[in-house]
Design a protein around this nucleic acid. Structure first.
Lengths: 111, 111
DNA sequence: ATCCAGTACTTGGCCATACATAGTACTTTC
DNA sequence: GAAAGTACTATGTATGGCCAAGTACTGGAT
């Protein structure tokens, strides 16, 4: 029972939300996302991100196209499908509710 | 890949935070917590709450005392240990950081 | 007194997902 | 052509919420 472990648990599900958000703003590939997540202090490793992207793609929320790169292997540029866009909207509501709930619990004084 | 499932994942870790918060405000027993969590729309079932309480107690963050009840079996009234209090403070920071991160990602405009 | 409903708590198995770690494949540079 | 860097893949582990069934105690109905 340590903070690190709890943080990992807290991240579950939230990551999915963050990634859909990043992609919704324009086409990006995995390293772009890693950079941004790191900048936002949502420390994430490759082995977490790639499987998640595959999962989202298989679920029909994402699609990608290969783009040649001058500095290495080709890259998968992702964007949201229409379904992904809808899903993200639902997810946003869910997340906002959750944050509101914790605030409600936090600020309530005892009876 | 549905909203319901993602919500479950999002709840991981957050629940622990909410429960410690509720207990930090004064001695309560499980049904009190369930009521409050339900009121805050953090729908939770017995089979989730009780094991969590046991885990927190075994980790030394909680302690309880039995109190007789006039309308049923005796109740376990929980309160935070000193260690639990410290842990909750750390958890609060972690949580605030996470919320900030998601907001950062959400409001950032694309380059 | 006996049975039933309500309350409080317990237990065991299932499943999704983040993480660690190692591995593949391609490109550029020396 | 060997080494370093980039992009992506695959496998096994652990955590924790959820479901469902079960125990134990109380008080009221028959």
């Amino acid at each position: 029972m340590n903070l690190e472990n709890t943080l990992v648990q807290m991240r579950k599900g939230i990551l999915e939300y963050c990634i859909l958000h990043i992609i919704s703003r324009g086409e990006v590939y995995a390293s772009d996302m890693l950079d941004e997540l790191t900048a936002a202090k949502m420390i994430v490793v490759e082995g977490t991100l790639y499987p998640l992207l595959t999962r989202l793609k298989n679920a029909g929320l994402l699609e990608y196209k290969w783009v040649e790169s001058k500095s290495g292997p080709p890259r998968k540029y992702y964007k949201l499908t229409e379904e992904g866009d809808t899903f993200l909207k639902g997810l946003s509501d869910t997340w906002e509710d959750l944050v509101r709930s914790t605030q409600m619990i936090k600020t309530k004084s005892n009876s």
